[in-house]
Design a protein around this nucleic acid. Sequence first.
RNA 1: GCCGGGUUGGCUGAGAGGUUUAGGCGGCUGCCUGCAGAGCAGCUUUAUGGGGGUUCGAAUCCCUCACCCGGCUCCA
Length: 482
Amino acid sequence: MKESKNLRFYDTLTRRKRGFKPLKDGKVGMYVCGPTVYSDPHIGNFRSFIVGDLIRRWLEYRKYEVFYVMNITDIDDKTIRDSGREGVSLREFTDRYTRSFLKGIDLLNIKRATVYPKATENILEMIEFIQELIEKGLAYEASDGVYFDIDKFPGYGKLSRIELSAVKPTERVSSDEYGKESPNDFALWKAASDEELERGIFYDSPWGKGRPGWHIECSVMSKKYLGDTIDIHAGGEDLIFPHHENEIAQSEGLTGKTFVRFWMHIGYLMINGRKMSKSLGNYISFDEVLSKYTPNEFRYFYLSTHYRKQIDYTEEAMANAKNASKKLSNTIDLAEEAFKSGLERLEYGKREEEFLNGILGLKSDFEDAMDDDLDTPRALNTLHQMSKLINEYLSKPVNKGVLSEAYEIYRSLLGALGLFEKRTSFEGGLFEELIKVIIETREKLRSEKNYALSDKIRELLSKIGVILSDKPDGTSWTIERR
RNA sequence: GCCGGGUUGGCUGAGAGGUUUAGGCGGCUGCCUGCAGAGCAGCUUUAUGGGGGUUCGAAUCCCUCACCCGGCUCCA
């Protein structure tokens, strides 16, 4: 586990995979566009967060120190609109959905970002940033706010490769011009509306009372925590245009430096062949998924498709993920049972040597796959092969030292994907004693061939998540992983 | 209209000119088991959207057609 020379990521700007090396040796600054907290996040949103987590974990596996920033957009049209409809303060409203977002993050075993800056807590910095853009002649004040003048930024469109002259104007654009000089100019600062004034949702600025536009927060907060140039900026593919395009215009316009070294974009989550989105109303809530599947099964589902590809949520795909992930976790249980077992061999023979070589080879395959733009489908493949190797080795008495080495590798690779880290541990204590009593009692029943009752006990325990396995040398138990 | 991405066996999903039956799921058989589960062994006989072309040889390169998905200022 050290820095890889072969680590490469696909960069949207250059449209190709490039070798990754951070600006500062050993340290990576990364920024992922976070949620707008106006409702409970749906499982499509979480794809981005899981992939962000994946990038971060892999960099850490490769021994980089990662400073991870994810913004929380807590002031925008929708948060203002919906809190108003509900008749609660903006703050109360966004706090609620911020908590909901963080709850999902924890449930899915997504490692917390280093910092989650909120838009409303960085208003002063935004005002300064906008002021500088105006001074540089890149932005102008209009009757209803401040706009960025995209004609003044020659590189505009380089990320999305969009040619604005060819863009078919939509109704939205034409009906939404207000004080803009050009339809594609975007708002940096929006003058407060009557409703906003009434509800006290505004900030004082050199341009009167108002609030920031959406795009400015990312430029400002990433600069604040990560500096002018950041290594990685990731987000859903729907953000390429205009959000990220605008961020580039703002940041590079201001500093004259490269804003982002690697733009990484995440494919949509589809549902039955259609993009899942709140506005289409075809989304599945987070709670609904977690009532049917465990976080690990859900994560496995995400991992089974490469992050840049669109992934289709179907019951079939989920069943697939459920079974396949179970297979991987079974190996953990089998190995742990073997550690407890009295059967063992102490010698290091050909079987051990071949076994370990196989494991090491697969570990290297896994690393190659992940280094290649986080190819998780391929990485999972090597994990399945490794699982099989370990299971095979376990089918005969094992050398526990050798097993331990393989086990550690297997767990560390699973951990790099965020799989099966949270294990319900009931080892020791009263719980374990209780299970032992039950197993012994049941053993007695079985020796008396009272299978009806012993099967009933097994069935009832399985309903509460305690799985008994009868084997020739006794009965073992595990807790079903949630 | 303009710009991207995709089309591989029942499902999922690799491969990226000449090993691969990729792997997984599902299904089936055998072993093990009182049974179940898990596991092991094996089978499910090489599928690559259509049509051209390049090549000794293409799922992999080129052309073309078809279909699907997405973006074009709500959006992860």
